[in-house]
């Protein structure tokens, strides 16, 4: 048995569902309860055990903490307050702390509401000719805000407790977003503007993941990447692992738990 403590926002639901069919039990029909997947969503923390047969279960200490948030001077919300800190301190020890905090900050970037653009990425070299190429300096200004939402809470945790710290990256953009049955909070924007190209969605996401990984690695936080089996050849989330427009389902959660177990057991 391996114990872990998990905290996260809506992306954690794929893992919870993989363990207990959690949403059915808690009468939540959709991933994004209260029509929001964003920074105002609940922080969930719980502990659970895993064994080698992947018989996952939630421990009796499982609980949900509602509406933990704080705004910084840029009006950007971080999950930092006294209740949060108290919980984290209570986890102090050698049990790994697994974060699935935030992760959907990049979702608005998939909406085609801006004049056409592209940018040059160090790893994805292709770009559209004839459209405005926005300097990566400005792209990074936006990405850094998305990174900060995760980095700062984890930096504080890192300073508070000695536990191993693991962050699970949010799922990549899904393939065929137009087929999503639930357009979540973006429903009006999608209907009005549609989506940017797959390549731009993916490029933004990957750059975000790289920046986040770099930031988290610097504070000795291990980053768990997306399960390869859930991605198509381009790197988009396969339909069978997607839920709604921006989330993954319990099958994705199962893959995550498999990878998490492998990571923890070394």
């Amino acid at each position: 048995m391996v114990d872990v403590c998990i905290l996260g926002h809506s992306h954690i639901i794929s893992v919870l569902d993989a363990i207990t069919d959690w949403r059915t039990k808690h009468e939540r029909e959709i991933v994004t309860q209260s029509d929001t997947f964003n920074l105002n969503c609940n922080v969930t923390n719980f502990a659970f055990g895993i064994n080698i047969h992947q018989k996952w279960h939630l421990s009796s200490t499982f609980k949900i903490i509602e509406n933990i948030k704080i705004k910084n001077k840029n009006n950007f919300e971080y999950v930092i307050n006294n209740i949060f800190l108290k919980i984290i301190k209570g986890w102090s020890g050698d049990i790994p702390i697994v974060s699935m905090l935030f992760g959907n900050e990049h979702a608005y970037a998939m909406i085609n509401s801006l004049p056409e653009y592209d940018f040059l990425d160090e790893e994805i070299h292709s770009y559209f000719n004839g459209v405005q190429i926005v300097d990566t300096t400005y792209i990074d200004l936006h990405i850094e805000k998305w990174v900060a939402a995760i980095y700062h809470p984890l930096r504080i945790i890192r300073g508070l407790v000695p536990n191993p710290l693991i962050h699970i990256l949010c799922p990549p953009p899904r393939e065929s977003p137009e087929l999503a049955d639930d357009l979540e909070i973006l429903i009006d924007l999608v209907r009005r503007y549609g989506f940017v190209s797959d390549s731009l969605r993916l490029k933004l996401y990957r750059r975000y993941c790289r920046k986040l990984t770099s930031a988290l690695t610097s504070i000795n936080c291990i980053v768990l990447t997306q399960p390869a089996d859930a991605l198509n050849i381009d790197g988009l989330l396969k339909l069978e692992y997607a839920e709604g427009l921006t989330h993954a389902n319990k099958y994705y959660g199962e893959l995550l738990l498999r990878d998490l177990e492998m990571l923890i057991k070394g």
């Binding site: 770009y127 459209v131 190429i133 300097d135 990566t136 300096t137």
Partner: peptide, 15 residues
């Protein structure tokens, strides 16, 4: 403000 890289500068010149 200039450009982040030569490739960026080339792409912007094309545009």
């Amino acid at each position: 403000i200039g450009f982040a890289s030569v490739k960026q500068a080339m792409a912007d010149r094309n545009y």
